[in-house]
Every structure is written in C-alpha cells, then in structure tokens.
C-alpha cells in the first residue's frame, strides 16, 4: 500500500451544499499538506469539483433513496488521488460521459474534457449501484520553497 501523507473526505446528500463542503475539505487538505505545489493544488481541486458537480447535476437515483456523494482525497508521496462516488445512482447516460470540448457558444458540456486536461489518469467504475470516478495527478513535493 502506498503511504498516505494527508487525507480528507466528504460524505452526504448530493446537493449544492456538498459542493461547498468539498471545496472546504480541499482547502483544509492543502493546509495539512502544504508541500503540494500550488499548480497541482489548483488543477486537482478543479478536477475534483468538476467530478463532484457532475454527480450533483446529473446523477439520478436508482430507487427512492437519494443520491449520496462521497469524496475521498489523499496526498501520496508521488501523486494526488481522489475517489469521487455517487451512491444509489443509475448508470450515467452516454451524453453525460462525453469528453470532447463542445462548440464555443455552448453553455455546458465542458466538465469531462476539463477533467481530462487537468489530471494524469481518469478511471470510471460502476459497482453495486455506485459510480466512482478515480482521478490521479502526478505530484511531488515542492523543493526549496
């Protein structure tokens, strides 16, 4: 198992408030792990918020229970890893999984393309009614700052 240097998470209903809570958890994570370079924080936080917002905006419940958002972000010696999950969720529609940039005047549809541009790997898993995005970004501690 790779060593985990810092870790933060969120679990709760997939609502607007959850997005603000995830932002706050990430701000706290960077305080815990101040050695993570500014560029890596900025890009990774943007990707995590895009994935969480995708769930809040698009995930549909599989039954009566509402969709729950679960975010687990960890700082490891050579990378940042986030697992962003939608529990009690249906499988995403193909249109919600498009990763190409839309036309210039489009007002939505850039989220996944942006995630791909921001991280090193993006993996999607579906298991027992849970959709999980696993985002990783290579990152090594800033030297001499």
């Amino acid at each position: 198992m790779t060593e985990i240097l810092a870790r933060r998470g969120y679990h709760g209903p997939a609502t607007d408030e959850a997005i603000e809570a995830v932002h706050d958890e990430m701000d706290a994570l960077w305080e815990d792990a101040s050695f993570v370079p500014e560029m890596d924080r900025m890009t990774f936080a943007t990707a995590v918020i895009e994935a969480a917002a995708n769930i809040v905006q698009h995930a549909l419940p599989v039954a009566e229970k509402p969709v729950e958002l679960d975010v687990d972000i960890s700082v490891r010696p050579a990378c940042l890893v986030a697992r962003v999950s939608a529990h009690n969720a249906r499988e995403p529609f193909a249109n919600d999984m498009r990763a190409d940039m839309p036309a210039e005047d489009a007002e939505s549809g850039r989220g996944l393309a942006l995630i791909e541009a921001l991280v090193t790997t993006v993996t999607f898993e579906r298991q027992h009614g849970t959709n999980t995005w696993i985002l990783t970004r290579e990152s090594t501690p800033a030297q001499g700052e």
Partner: peptide, 16 residues
Amino acid sequence: DFMDSSGLGALIGCLK
C-alpha cells in the same frame, strides 16, 4: 478565486 465549467457556462450565457 475559483471557476468551474458551470461558472464558465454562465459567463458564456451572459456574453450572449
């Protein structure tokens, strides 16, 4: 200090 694709989409809508 932060903007995501939803914020960007809103700016494009406002531009239009």
